[in-house]
Write a protein that binds this DNA or RNA. Sequence first.
DNA 1: CCGAGGAACATTTTT
DNA 2: TGTTCCTCGG
Length: 748
Amino acid sequence: MLPHRLAPCYTETDMKPQDTDRQDSYRQEQESRFEETFLSPSGGEAPSPRTAPEEAALPRLRRFEYPGMSEEHRQYLAVFTSSSALAASAPPGPVPADLASLRVDYRSRLNDAQLQAALWEGGPLLVIAGAGTGKTWTICCRAAYLIERGVPPGEILLLTFTRKAASEMIGRASMLLDDAEAAGRISGGTFHGFAHRMIKRYADIIGVDRNFTILDETDARDVIVLIRDELKLRRRDNVPVPKGQVIQGILGTSRSCELTVKEVITRDHEHLSVYIPDLEVIQRLYLKYKQAHRYMDYDDLLEVLYEKLQNNSRFRQLVHRQFTHIIVDEYQDTNTVQGRLVEALAGERRQVMVVGDDAQSIYGFRGAKSENILNFPRIFPASGIIRIEKNYRSTPEILAYANDVTGAMTFAYPKQLASVRPGGAKPEVHRCFSQQEEASWICDAVENLQQQGSALADIAAVYRSNHLSGHLQAELLKRRIPFIVYGGLKFVERRHVKDMLAFVRISLNTLDAAAWHRVLRMISGIGQVRSGMIIRTVAENGGVFSAQKFRGHPFFSAMEELEGVIRYLQDDRLSLQQRLLRLKAYYLPVMRQHCEDYARRIPDLDVLASLAESSSSMEEFFSDLALDPPSASFQDYPTEKHDGDADSLVLSTVHSAKGLEWRYVFVISMLDGVFPDIRSLHDFSSLEEERRLFYVACTRARDGLYLSFPSYIQTHQYFALPSRFLSEQDREHFSFYIGRREHPVKFV
DNA sequence: CCGAGGAACATTTTT
DNA sequence: TGTTCCTCGG
């Protein structure tokens, strides 16, 4: 008799690709596991009901230990298991007796759990809302209710992770109340946007120079490269000097995960340990650079706000008076500073509600701490916990599958999502031969769905990482199926956009060395060395750039021209658009020289100019761009004609798909080593994060979920085996097919 | 010292 | 597929 579910049984040593013997045995083991899971006749025990009703009633952590568990990991888990607060769910607060007198009929719009959350009166509240349970809707109702109850809208602070999410919620709240004016005064936005506003507004009180500029990630990378090059590092121990992106990654992880550079390198980049002292120097210089040039990066905004809230009582009072009710969305993705910030903002009044789903925490690699959500009850004693588990999105079959995924998770607030929808088809698992065949199978299936009346926009294909979509894109192009790619290279990260913005940055701050480098190197005859010389001249000149200083140099006329452009950009009497169009005129010939496909990039320059329309100053334009970057969907797709409204299939990484839903979802490349990613296999907690990511992928689907994988993949041959996530599933919960749709061989 | 051309190389990324 | 690093010839 087969075990009902096959437990994962890997250790780090199984996975070392160098060791061919082990590799072979790993392969064999995987193959047999695969066969047992998918190919043998259904013979397992009947699925046992996993959650007894009484077990489901209380939020409680699963305990978890395994043989050979390290002390470190044990301690890590102890954070969760000792969270005493989890046992103490506060009793429901009183629901106002006179519900009927309220303008909005909440009872008819919300289920019991949602209603309890929206009308909560018992102080701090943690809402655990699974995927598709109407979390957004509940927050909207909460905001509407607070307003009805007499809280001035301006005192409600709604913190989210994207500006879109905030404005959407405020929009829905205003529809609900039928009072756009009142709801419009709700203060909503991202953590970063909020921090920016507060710092600018109270700059004088908190003693921060108001004239700072925001350094986005790409700019920050330029600065880091600049610093690294200035150090003139030589190859050490025949290890190449790390790339800018890698250095930025290390410094970023060090910051957001609160580790030293040394710790990060030892943990994630062992081969770079010879560079530890250099990177520590770079870290210090980067800090200095920001101070010297009045730059703040994203983390600085949050940290400054937190630090000032702690240490400046006048500021704290002002902020507390202004915002009396705090609502935080996607709490599972907050990092340490954000968690503390919520605590500091709530203050003594503790009118704080956080909403999240620990099973959907997928940004741990960036410092998001799902501990925040688990620790909330400890930070705010006597807080309430409400779970919303009724799912309005997916069919029972899809949810049964998704619940299996959460069942395989080690720690979480246990939850069983229950569907309110009628039954549909079971999720399908498809094994294809190659990536090409997988792509072609998906296209077949998509065309099928189209014939059955689905719009392309109802369908999405999601994958672990960007490059996996290549084959699919090629096939879609061949068949002329229009598609949109989410989460590719962002608009502001494109080379030509960055180039244009470098001029803008210089016009705002003539001491910005990184921007100068970028701009100067466009001029023929100027490279690393001369550009450094020019920048030094500008700095010695107190930040004044004068072409006259370079009379006699071979590039004198180029300097004159450059000076003209910059003066033009600085001229406040002209409209932003005028200035940017002048810049475009200067930049076009440069771009023609450097880019093969320069014609295709021109529209982006116009987009940039038109984005400026809504800003009142160059500085504001620049901040807005950093805090609210236009989405990647500006991309020009190689389909013949494509405008934003066209009916298109969506291709997206799972990360970018979070919070979205489609009728039909294809999860492609379900291979071990791909999804889960090979780099996560050695570490328990990152493997858990991959599993949560898989959970997010599955719960995007409303009507149909299709998982597929190729058995043969050119680049990572030895991992061309089905994802372990597939074999963790109960075989009753999916159907399995081999080969093309026309000739499916159904096994289970 | 500059820049062209070839080789090497790639997670995920709300701000 | 695109970007960045490295080397070598002007």
